[in-house]
């Protein structure tokens, strides 16, 4: 057997599996989206139909807020951990990165424990003000959940990027008279820009499409994944849910692809 045919044989199982369980289902999804009473216009419903559009706007705003907050928090913490060595640092890094593999449902539960009816925040606020603060089941709870999900990921990316920054650059800036703030603004943040764009895109795309957290928390949070789920299971509206999920998929893919075109490579694989 020649090397060339061996390479093809190596590729064959992947091609078969991908075709059967990914390409075919995706094609089916595309077709189904256009099979509703509205036909191809179903794909426009996400923008045209006021109820769907409101949900879309809601989802995008939530994802954007999550992204911005995560980036700020993770940059401060990530840079701090990368620059300083102190006892207990390793434990801190471990705590900040372990939630990486928690699935959305578990994160939802974490938020319930924090801000739910029996949650810590409600408990504390009741004792302090007599008013029990419960917001786990609202869009704020979801926001907190997405933060919980995104912070570990982004911190890791930023720490890795900060490690690769040439320390000579900051030293050069200081030798030219730049203070700590100027160094941060002119050298460090620009150096981190690709990592910020990449991890920000992942945070945004994940917040757009995440289902588990919303599912655990939400009785009535108005975000796109929940809308798709209710359209499919409760309303049995195949075409709409297919069209909506195609729209959602295209959006998340576009965000990641766009970020990748800004930063070179390695964005998509972390989601």
């Amino acid at each position: 057997m020649s090397h060339k045919s061996f390479v093809w044989i190596c590729l064959l199982p992947l091609a078969a599996v991908t075709a059967a369980f990914f390409l075919l289902p995706m094609a089916r999804l595309l077709v189904t989206g256009a099979e509703g009473p509205r036909g191809l216009a179903e794909y426009l419903a996400i923008l045209v139909e006021p109820r769907y559009r409101a949900t879309l706007v809601n989802t995008v705003l939530l994802a954007a807020a999550t992204t911005v907050a995560t980036l700020i928090i993770a940059t401060i913490a990530g840079l701090f951990l990368q620059r300083h060595r102190f006892p207990g640092r390793a434990v801190l890094v471990a705590i900040l990165t372990f939630p990486l593999a928690f699935p959305g449902v578990v994160i939802g539960f974490m938020i319930i424990l924090l801000a739910g009816r029996q949650g810590l925040i409600g408990d504390v606020s009741a004792r302090l003000t007599g008013d029990k603060l419960v917001f786990a089941y609202s869009i704020y709870g979801l926001f907190l959940g997405y933060l919980y999900f995104s912070i570990p990921r982004v911190i890791l990316t930023i720490m890795a990027a900060a490690q690769k920054l040439d320390p000579g650059l900051a030293e050069a800036a200081r030798s030219l008279g730049a203070g700590p703030f100027a160094v941060l603004r002119d050298v460090i943040l620009p150096g981190l820009a690709p990592a910020l764009v990449a991890s920000g895109a992942i945070a945004f795309a994940t917040a757009m499409g995440a289902f588990g957290t919303a599912f655990t928390l939400a009785t009535n949070i108005d975000v796109l994944p929940m809308l798709i789920y209710t359209e499919f299971t409760l309303a049995g509206n195949l075409a709409t849910s297919a069209a909506l999920s195609v729209g959602l998929g295209v959006m998340t893919w576009l965000i990641l692809a766009l970020a990748r075109s800004f930063t070179g490579n390695s964005v998509a694989a972390a989601g």
């Binding site: 289902p25 499409g209 195949l238």
Partner: peptide, 16 residues
């Protein structure tokens, strides 16, 4: 499949 929400993939599998 990493970039596309799991919901979409699941829906596609169910439909197929």
């Amino acid at each position: 499949p990493v970039a596309i929400p799991g919901l979409a993939l699941a829906l596609g599998l169910l439909l197929s």
